[in-house]
Amino acid sequence: MEQIRDLFLDDLVLRYDRVLVLCVSGTRGRVFDRATQASYAILQGYRERREQAGRGGQFALRVLDTGNVGPGEGVLAHEAIRIIEEQAPPFEKLRRTLKDMARQTICLTVPHDLWYLHNRARSKGENSMTLSFYRLGRALEIKPILEMRDGRSRVAGSVRGFERAVARVLDQARDVLSKGHILPVVVMSFGGDPRIIREMTAYQEFEAFAAAHKCRLHLSVMSASMAVNVGPGAFALAYIQK
């Protein structure tokens, strides 16, 4: 909490008048709780810091639980920037819009290492990866497809082979995009070198399809905070339903 408070009071309140903090789902970490607690101290102490720096006016801060992880946070950040640039809405309207979008954001993850995922889930008291599924998946190279939405996760399906599972996720994104059910932006991350994903035939086909439908794609290295939960070599994709 102290690190968040110091970041704002020493830097952000001196450069910005309004800040909206997008946090990883509260069901997946304590960042939202800590940022919320820090916000009280920030709002109480910012005036003196701004006056010392010769910056007048009020400072507004809001903390939003995205109910999602990794690319799910990224796709909301993308939309926040787009809305600000295109519409310049009032700050509170922007917060409400993103809060509504967060409820419609879906993140699909394909873990690569089931042993890591099983042990991580067990240590956190989760039952999304049962022992029987872990044993079957490891024996037959079956990869689960995990869906995260509005703070809740579930196993949405399973496919034999990592590359086939990634292709299944890309096919799902292609399907909802072709039907006009999502906003035209898809954010992806990979727990390794993104070139591995870019070289997959399924990705190249999806990339061409997205370009034809004027949908922006963003693929990056997976964040450390997400990778520590799903394991190395995982792939994740997120979009926002209309």
Rank of each mutant, 00 (worst) to 15 (best):
Gly56Pro: 04
Gly56Glu: 13
Gly57Gln: 12
Gly57Val: 05
Gln58Tyr: 01
Gln58Pro: 04
Phe59Met: 10
Ala60His: 08
Ala60Lys: 11
Ala60Trp: 02
Ala60Gly: 05
Leu61Glu: 12
Arg62Met: 09
Val63Lys: 04
Leu64Cys: 02
Leu64His: 11
Asp65Cys: 09
Gly67Gln: 07
Gly67Leu: 07
Asn68Lys: 11
Asn68Phe: 01
Asn68Arg: 01
Asn68Val: 06
Gly70Phe: 05
Pro71Tyr: 05
Glu73Ala: 08
Gly74Ala: 15
Gly74Met: 11
Val75Gln: 08
Val75Tyr: 07
Val75Asn: 05
Leu76His: 02
Ala77Asp: 09
Ala77Phe: 06
His78Ala: 10
His78Gly: 02
His78Trp: 14
His78Asn: 12
Glu79Met: 12
Ala80Tyr: 09
Ile81Met: 10
Ile83Leu: 14
Ile84Leu: 15
Glu85Lys: 12
Glu85Leu: 11
Gln87His: 09
Gln87Arg: 14
Gln87Gly: 03
Ala88Arg: 15
Ala88Thr: 02
Pro89Lys: 07
Pro89Met: 09
Pro89Thr: 01
Pro90Phe: 00
Pro90Cys: 00
Pro90Gly: 00
Glu92Cys: 02
Glu92Trp: 06
Leu94Glu: 10
Leu94Gln: 01
Arg95Phe: 12
Arg95Ile: 01
Arg95Ala: 06
Leu98Cys: 01
Lys99Asp: 14
Asp100Cys: 02
Asp100Glu: 15
Asp100Leu: 05
Asp100Trp: 06
Asp100Ser: 04
Met101Thr: 02
Arg103Pro: 01
Arg103His: 04
Gln104Trp: 04
Gln104His: 13
Thr105Tyr: 06
Cys107Glu: 14
Leu108Arg: 12
Leu108Val: 04
Val110Met: 07
His112Val: 03
His112Tyr: 14
Asp113Val: 02
Leu114Val: 07
Trp115Met: 08
Trp115Leu: 11
Trp115Ala: 14
Leu117Tyr: 09
Leu117Gly: 07
His118Val: 04
Asn119Lys: 09
Asn119Gln: 12
Arg120Cys: 03
Arg120Gly: 02
Ala121Cys: 08
Arg122Val: 00
Ser123Gly: 04
Lys124Asp: 00
Lys124Leu: 13
Gly125His: 05
Asn127Ala: 08
Asn127His: 10
Ser128Met: 13
Ser128Gly: 03
Tyr134Ile: 06
Tyr134His: 13
Arg135Asn: 10
Leu136Trp: 06
Leu136Gly: 04
Leu136Ala: 10
Leu136Ile: 11
